[in-house]
Write a protein that binds this DNA or RNA. Structure first.
Length: 151
DNA sequence: GCCAACGTTGGC
DNA sequence: GCCAACGTTGGC
């Protein structure tokens, strides 16, 4: 079972929105993020749900991968802000998985706090790399356990 | 709101 | 295939 961290802007789609029901994680337009969703994610994988671009960025909840990958329908919809005319339904460029809510963390484990361990237990965590912009990234089992224990 | 870092695009 | 220009991300 693999583990992941996925970012979302709380003003667009936050943990409370996720709690309302399983959600197609559409709109990802980054190849590396896509590859992980399409090629590596499996149903039941654990996900840290991270709030970005907000007052206190950090991990606020847990989610689960709820489907294998399938083509992102928003790429085919000219009315959608994530429309990509280069994604051909016969050969889709963008994929997504469904995410389901597991629970809120009892507190926000902030980016600032995680950074304290950047040279220790969380060394190599993509989130902590300078200039990181990935919205979907892997978390090792050791990192997963360590972060959960901070709660 | 600022701006550094990054990925993508497109001219050549 | 290079690389400058551009748009986006996301912390602060």
């Amino acid at each position: 079972m693999a583990h992941w961290l996925m970012k979302s802007e709380p003003e667009v789609f936050g943990i409370d929105d996720l709690a309302a029901g399983p959600t197609p994680w559409d709109g990802v337009r980054n190849y590396q993020a896509r590859n992980w969703m399409r090629d590596t994610m499996r149903v039941g994988d654990g996900v840290f749900f991270y709030h970005s671009n907000c007052e206190a960025p950090g991990i606020v909840g847990l989610a689960e991968v709820a489907s294998t990958a399938y083509p992102d329908p928003t790429a085919f919809d000219p009315e959608d802000p994530h429309y990509d005319p280069k994604s051909d339904p016969a050969n889709p460029r963008w994929y997504l998985v469904d995410l389901s809510y597991s629970r809120h963390l009892r507190r926000n484990i902030t980016l600032a706090e995680l950074r304290q361990y950047a040279d220790g237990p969380l060394e190599g965590l993509a989130l902590l790399r300078r200039g990181n912009r990935l919205s979907v990234m892997p978390v090792t089992p050791q990192q997963w356990q360590f972060i959960l224990a901070l709660e």
